[in-house]
Design a protein around this nucleic acid. Sequence first.
DNA 1: TCAATAATTAGAATTATTCTAAAAATAGCT
DNA 2: AGCTATTTTTAGAATAATTCTAATTATTGA
Lengths: 143, 143
Amino acid sequence: MKNNITESSKCNAEDFPSVDGLRMTRQRSEVYSVLMSYRDHPTAGEVFERAKENMPTISLATVYNCLEALVQHGAVRQVNFERESSRYCPNLTEHGHFHDEESGKIIDVPLKKGAKLSDLLDLPEGAEIDNLEITLRGKISNN
Amino acid sequence: MKNNITESSKCNAEDFPSVDGLRMTRQRSEVYSVLMSYRDHPTAGEVFERAKENMPTISLATVYNCLEALVQHGAVRQVNFERESSRYCPNLTEHGHFHDEESGKIIDVPLKKGAKLSDLLDLPEGAEIDNLEITLRGKISNN
DNA sequence: TCAATAATTAGAATTATTCTAAAAATAGCT
DNA sequence: AGCTATTTTTAGAATAATTCTAATTATTGA
């Protein structure tokens, strides 16, 4: 079992034939399937490494292109942690990210149902939010 | 009047003689004063340009060094918007940032007093938050 | 004053990402 | 099916922000 993904959770490019208005090429399918299979937060480089296992001829530029296309079509989210390279996230529900300083792990942090951003923040007059990024860094004290 | 800062709001490096445990060199003072004077969110390159007006011999590497020192001593905050170059923020109160897509302006968004993060987010068990970054992107509909 | 330490500097190196231009694939006709 | 236009992929070059290096300068404290 490679990359600590179980066989049962593994899936293939053919499992994702389409994303709304995006033409599904073999490469886009492969990139999308990599993200949907592993369900973590890989960088473009990591996606490239994983994609090459199934599709050894794919290029890094294509991975960047595919990721951009997927992001623009809302199939995947791009998240940034400080100055590190962008990571890609298949979780489309509203959520933030907790970055564990000890393990390095990135954990999705769901927004509470019904909670409103305006309860936490004094938003500027007339602000229309298109995009929200919440990033937390810290430790998990597991007693 | 340059850089839309009024004379009265302008200040000099000598106005900031010390930051807690940080040795205040001329360059660090200058960089700090640039941030405190303009109170916006300049990139390292922009800080460099502004600092050169008073101190033409300062180098970009030094600006990076000074900014890093100031950030590490909690005198200034480093904020990141997507993949853009880091910006530096002199506002030490807890706040997020709203990035206006039309004007490009960055607006500080204060956290509401008494509001708790845990009201908005389902934080992981035992999570200890060292750092919180909230970034909003959108438009201001000014009727 | 002098030695030890720390900061500054210019320029080289690094790294993630984007760009370029050519080749390959695909779609939409007829 | 064949042809043309459009899109995508590709390798490698280019870019840009940041960090590193090694030499110089400044500062501290004995």
